[in-house]
Design a protein around this nucleic acid. Structure first.
Lengths: 220, 220
DNA sequence: TCATTATTCAATTGATTACTTGAATAGTCA
DNA sequence: TGACTATTCAAGTAATCAATTGAATAATGA
């Protein structure tokens, strides 16, 4: 047993995953991909990176098995390779929130609202959905909604919210959600809704976390 | 709300943690620190790195809040900053096992024994400990045992196992454990014990994972 | 006080990294 | 077939990183 080499070889492998997670852009990509699959060009638009650069980042993620690619016609669709990866990124966020002063500073600076908007925990939301007490509002783009959303949620992208307010039942509370705890779409939606006099809160975190908890989802 | 900058700033912060995890040496250090606190010199010996280099790696971990330092006399003792970090590293390992072919190859190559040594799951072990059916053997160095071990475990470092076989009850099964799923000490211990005709298996993973599950531990 | 020890700092080396640019590949559609 | 498109590849630049070396700090004990 040349045990010492085994262990360091193995840890060197795990370190490759760390390296893949060592870029903010790649973490952003993983958040988008956690919503469903996306082509290189779509991700390039979402992240604001050049197509070539986006492609290279995706290949780094693919080399360590975090994402897989599927070619269909001209397009290559990338997706996260499994739930374990979404869980890993969530754990990374949790550690950052708990232990990095700079994260705390940023969150307090931008999401002071985090206090005032009273996020709804996932379990509480599902209780109230089952009782028909609440409208669940998915404010992500329709491509993401189509690939999976909270069961019973209606989709009104935040960009169209003002025009489509009539689609939202005015008689009960609305809970908005989007991609995750640091996606701002749900924050904006809540603000818009409240200005119109609709009682609104946001889900504590986003669709991927909901799904990971095993709560009910639906597609299409 | 200059939301776009907020999100990329935040993800850039999380990426710093990824970067801290992007070195095999640092992951190894975190595994050692998950057993309890250690001085720079001790870690330098354990990892085989120079003291200066060890110090710099530790500072990288500290800068992102993964470890904390405590000065006592001449020595600086480092420790992991919280359970969330141990959980993060465990999740990283899980993703590696699940998605990296190279990890699979290494594990199959070196731990073929993984099949033959029939690891005991933590819950099963605790059931049998409560019934007094099994001897739990901690084969880590005594400094680590002293800082926390499975309740009721006896400590015989694997290096002294052959000399101290008489301390191990011969009439019941022994379950050995060490630092974690890829620590080889428990494997060696099981081999030694079996050669002496003692029925032995190893715990599926190590002390930090046991503690994280909320199973009973004791110190001193 | 001085010698000793554990740790950190600073400067240097060579190796990676992110991103850009422009060309190459592979699939589609007329 | 040829024009077009999405993606990938290859080469180059500037920036960042790991590890080594030797000096600097800070705490101890004679």
């Amino acid at each position: 047993m040349s045990g010492h080499n085994f262990k360091s070889d193995l840890f060197e492998q795990f370190a490759r995953i760390g390296k893949a997670l060592s870029s903010g852009k790649r973490l952003e990509m993983l958040e988008f991909l956690a919503q469903g699959e996306r082509s290189v060009e779509q991700l390039s638009n979402l992240t604001g990176l050049s197509v070539a650069n986006t492609s290279q980042h995706l290949q780094q993620l693919r080399r360590v098995g975090l994402v897989t690619a599927r070619k269909e016609g001209l397009y290559v669709h990338y997706r996260v390779a499994g739930d374990a990866i979404v869980r890993l990124v969530a754990t990374l966020r949790a550690v950052g929130e708990e232990h990095m002063a700079e994260v705390d500073r940023l969150v307090k600076l931008f999401l002071d609202s985090k206090d005032t908007l009273e996020p709804v925990p996932a379990k509480e939301l599902w209780q109230r959905v089952k009782q028909g007490l609440v409208t669940v509002l998915d404010v992500r783009p329709p491509e993401e909604y189509a690939q999976g959303h909270i069961r019973g949620a209606i989709n009104v992208p935040v960009t169209e919210l003002k025009k489509r307010l009539h689609q939202i039942p005015a008689d009960q509370e609305v809970v908005a959600y989007c991609r995750g705890p640091y996606c701002l779409l749900a924050y904006e939606a809540v603000q818009v809704l409240r200005k119109k006099g609709i009682k609104a809160r946001r889900l504590e975190d986003g669709y991927p976390e909901w799904r990971l908890r095993g709560l009910p989802v639906e597609m299409g």
